[in-house]
């Protein structure tokens, strides 16, 4: 599904990713862990096509297409979704209006008609319910005045509605209390299926208690230095990132 091949990325001329490779197959859940500044978030951003990330070598193919050649919106339409670590606030544009535009754009790409307002509202309400977000949030400006936890749940709500083929969660667990963490994890788990994959980017293994990954990769200084199953995450928690860093060095 996703194949990252020896990816090198600069941010403001500074190398951040230095030869990242990763294979993700349908149905799999991959966790990417690593210390601050190791390139975790950069990985998510460069995959979704955010500006300011300069790919100097390597490539990414997604469902057989050259992902990096696609404009941002095309990537989303092909089924890629990033749950942002810091979702942006857009006052004046209601959450509902935003979600409708998004759902319709994806449907149009699949050759489907726009959803009528009633069907859309029903789906949107269901998605809110699934992440325990009050329906009033649909009428509010996108992320406007939402608490940190509400923003994260709003991201997961969008994911539920858009049903991506590959979802990347960028430190969705940061700043969440246990209850919110469980809500997020339940959302993800309910979407797990044989034809859908997840990349969970996290600093802590805590989230992985609720979303059990098939693979855990440790990112240090811009590349994967160690991969394993979920016991690797537990080991990391116990020994800290210093252990890996010294082992690699």
């Amino acid at each position: 599904m996703l194949s990252i091949n020896n990816l090198h990325v600069n941010v403001e001329e500074k190398p951040i990713l230095k030869g990242l490779s990763l294979e993700v197959k349908p149905g799999e859940v991959h966790a990417i862990m690593g210390p601050n500044g190791s390139g975790k978030s950069t990985t998510g951003h460069v995959l979704t096509g955010r500006e300011g990330y300069d790919v100097t070598s390597g490539g990414v193919s997604f469902l057989g297409k050259d992902l990096l050649a696609l404009p941002i919106e095309e990537r989303a339409r092909e089924g890629l979704f990033l749950a942002f670590q810091y979702p942006v606030e857009i006052p004046g544009v209601s959450n509902m209006e935003f979600l409708k535009a998004s759902v319709d754009a994806l449907r149009s790409h699949q050759g489907l008609d726009s959803l009528d307002a009633v069907t859309f509202m029903k789906k949107a309400r269901e998605a809110c319910k699934a992440v325990k977000l009050d329906q009033a949030f649909l009428k509010r400006g996108v992320n406007e005045g939402f608490s940190g936890g509400e923003k994260k749940r709003n991201e997961i709500m969008q994911m539920m509605l858009l049903q991506p083929k590959l979802a990347i969660l960028d430190e969705t667990d940061s700043g969440l209390d246990i209850d919110a963490l469980q809500v997020v994890a339940e959302g993800v788990n309910s979407l797990r299926s044989d034809d859908r994959a997840f990349i969970v980017i996290t600093h802590y293994q805590r989230l992985l208690n609720y979303i059990e990954p098939d693979f855990v990769h440790v990112l240090v200084d811009g590349k994967v230095v160690k991969s394993g199953d979920r016991t690797l995450a537990l080991e990391l928690e116990e020994k800290g990132y210093g252990w890996i860093e010294s082992e690699v060095a």
């Binding site: 941002i72 004046g92 998004s102």
Partner: peptide
């Protein structure tokens, strides 16, 4: 703009939505 695009929304539509939002507040 990038946030809206990352949800599949066309650039031109994203601009329209943000302009509207700016005034709609």
């Amino acid at each position: 703009i990038a946030y809206l695009q990352s949800r599949g929304i066309e650039l031109s539509q994203a601009r329209r939505m943000l302009s509207f939002g700016f005034i709609n507040q």
